[in-house]
Amino acid sequence: MTLAIETHGLSRYFDDFCAVAGIDLKVERGTFYGFLGPNGAGKSTTIKMLTGLLAPTKGEMFVLGKNMSDQREALEAKAKVGVIPEDLALFDNLTAREYLTFVGRMYRVPKETIRSRIDELLPLLGLESDEKKFTLEYSHGMKKKLALAAAVLPNPDLLFLDEPFEGVDAVTSRVIRDLLAHYVARGSTVFLTSHVLEIVEKLCTHVGIIVKGELVEQASLDALRQGISLEERFLEKAGADAEPVQKLRWLEEGTA
């Protein structure tokens, strides 16, 4: 079994606050890994550390077999990784085509290949009619689609996607799901975070659940569900109170 992502005791503190508490991730190659957790659980912090956007406080991490703590190996790993970061990472004053060309060249993709891939990606993601706009004129959903195009353009072995479906319309969402399904089917790996459990349930083969910085579950989707829905299992693992929410008497009584 070869691992696409492997961490040992990966932790991140912000002053005294522990955002990620020594997690041991194991993501096999060729899997579609959904990384779930409530708000503030440490999902984005983990993805930032794995992609090199944030330094861990302690612990080890290996991406595609490369030690990310080693500067030289980190660059080798980055050459095979595509990322949609949390706040995206677009240059305001470039058009979509210019930005994608820039990204492609950063990954040393041949120019002709870049051109043909852009010509396929822009219409596929519905950005063709807006390709002359600067990215600062894009809506959030359009920016997200452009970031996805940039992530897949170098044809990486591993994709890190932080909330890729947030703010994206239903049509494009379908396109992205199909695209990612084909991508995994050929043997590549996707590591994604999402709040939309239905999408995770449809797409992912493996799931990790992080709560308050701790990895509380990591298994294949089937092993995790054990006959119940992912949502129920997630709520159980996330520690949602089984008791009914205590009634807010002042809310029931009307305006004060």
């Binding site: 090199g52 956007l53 660059l75 990784v81 990322v83 970061p85 950063m106 990954y107």
Partner: peptide
């Protein structure tokens, strides 16, 4: 972020 993420 592009530069941080890039393998260049």
């Amino acid at each position: 972020k592009n530069f941080v993420l890039s393998p260049a």
